[in-house]
Simulated scan of single mutants.
Amino acid sequence: MADETIGVVGAGIVGLATAREIALRRPGTRVVVLEKEREVSRHQTGHNSGVVHAGIYYPPGSLKADLTVRGVALLRAYCQDRGLPYREIGKLVVAVREDELGRMARLYERAKHNHVPELRTVSREEIKELEPHAGGIAALHSPRTAITDYPAVAREFAKDVTDSGGEVRLGFEVTGITTVPGGVEVASGPERVAVDRLVLCAGLQSDTVAALARGGPEPRIVPFRGEYMLLKPERADLVRGLIYPVPDPRYPFLGVHFTPRVDGTVEVGPNAVLALAREGYRRTRVSPRDLLGLAAYPGTWRMAARHWRTGVKEYRGSFSAAAFMKDAGHYVPGVGVHDVVRGGAGVRAQALDRDGTLVDDFRIHRSDRITAVRNAPSPAATASLAIAAHIVDEVFRKT
């Protein structure tokens, strides 16, 4: 059907990619993006480290793996077409202990199943050829892993939406969602927008916005703040490409790593600490409402019981630069607190089930005229164009 109006709540990279996909796929459809902030990509997209993941980590057959592999190709072509930064600087996933070699071998097999291009295992000596200052006893090398500027990509997506006749309405904080005959009414205080269908891509607020649409209560969003150090400019040449640890499969975060950015800076981090507000980019930001919501949810306490030791370690790194850099020093020996300054921080929308399980794959729920993206974890930015196609398939799927 043409001449519909479709609303998209959220002007992060996933929401904007979805709005763009609707406009491209359904000519004649009017698309309206509704965003509470005064500019696009203010939250997770705007605090993203810029890595274009190749698909190394994700379970074969998962939606995450499928969308990442497809998304990388689409994003690369889009950036090249629009003149946006896209630099294949490569990644080393480094084992620093013998007991990590088995996990690294299993990661290699997983990545090969996901068709990660040109991936290979490298020795200690080959690590030094690729990264002269790196440590480690062996590594996986992914030469096609890239970096980009996701806020710039998001702004270009927004331009595509408006160029197609759509609208990106900023400063529109959704306070009510009501299903009415033939459509959906979205409210921001006294203001109303009528749409035929609605897609919710609200990121850090995805569960609260879904609740306005009378969606299910789970999964809930738990905010984790990731804090970064920056290598001092005179030390940035210690790192050529991305240097990552071998991840612990029991925990959804990748650990402290080294990330060159397209602006020439090099980030070290992030850690992962429970934020005291959904938009708690600073330690001092506390939201009593968000804290009460976390405390009232059984999954929070079950998660804490499983992961409290890791949580204590992460908080230690949050308050002590020396503790933070101790882990980083395993991967680039000799780098310490004297080589870095405090950098920025981001907040990750980690979805959590009632049983305390940290949700690790995409979750998209559809009910009649409303499609809700309940979880879009990393690598959502990498896979944004493929995720958008998947979401739009769901929006227009015949029941």
Rank of each mutant, 00 (worst) to 15 (best):
G203A: 05
K232L: 15
A236C: 14
L238T: 05
R250W: 01
F258Q: 00
T208Q: 10
V268M: 05
T259V: 15
V262Q: 04
A210C: 14
L242M: 13
I221K: 06
P223A: 09
N271E: 10
T265D: 12
G280E: 02
Y281T: 13
V222C: 12
I221L: 07
R197N: 04
S206Q: 14
A272S: 10
P270C: 08
C201T: 12
V199W: 03
Q205W: 13
L230N: 10
G280F: 03
L242R: 13
T208H: 03
L276W: 07
P249D: 08
C201W: 02
L200H: 01
D196Q: 11
I243S: 00
F224K: 04
A272R: 04
L242I: 15
L231A: 10
L238F: 10
E218Y: 13
L200W: 00
F258G: 00
V199R: 03
P245V: 00
E191Q: 13
G241L: 03
L198P: 06
Y228G: 12
L212N: 01
L242V: 10
L276M: 14
P219N: 07
R240I: 08
M229H: 12
P245L: 00
Y251V: 12
D207M: 08
D207E: 02
P245A: 01
A213R: 06
V268W: 01
R225H: 08
F258V: 00
G215R: 08
Q205G: 06
P252A: 09
R225M: 08
G269E: 06
A272F: 05
G255H: 00
E218F: 12
V266W: 01
M229E: 07
P245T: 01
P260A: 07
A272L: 06
E267M: 15
E218G: 14
D196W: 12
F253T: 04
V239Y: 09
E279D: 11
A210W: 03
G255V: 01
V256S: 01
L231G: 10
V246S: 03
D237P: 09
A202Y: 01
E227F: 09
H257F: 02
D263M: 11
R235N: 09
R250A: 14
T259R: 12
V273L: 08
P252M: 09
E234R: 13
E218P: 08
A213M: 06
R240L: 08
P270A: 13
V268R: 06
V193E: 10
Q205L: 12
R278P: 05
R197F: 04
V222W: 13
A275C: 10
P217Q: 11
C201A: 14
P247G: 05
F224G: 02
E218S: 14
R278D: 08
E279V: 03
F258K: 00
P260R: 11
V273T: 15
I243A: 00
P270L: 07
R220A: 15
Y228L: 11
L204Y: 00
V262G: 07
G216V: 11
Y251D: 04
L254W: 01
D207Y: 02
P223V: 11
G269D: 05
A277Q: 04
E191W: 02
V195A: 08
L200I: 15
V222D: 09
V239I: 15
R250P: 00
R278G: 13
D207R: 06
V273P: 09
R235T: 05
G226N: 06
P247Q: 03
P270K: 07
Q205C: 06
L204H: 01
G255Q: 00
E227R: 13
A194M: 15
S206T: 15
A210V: 11
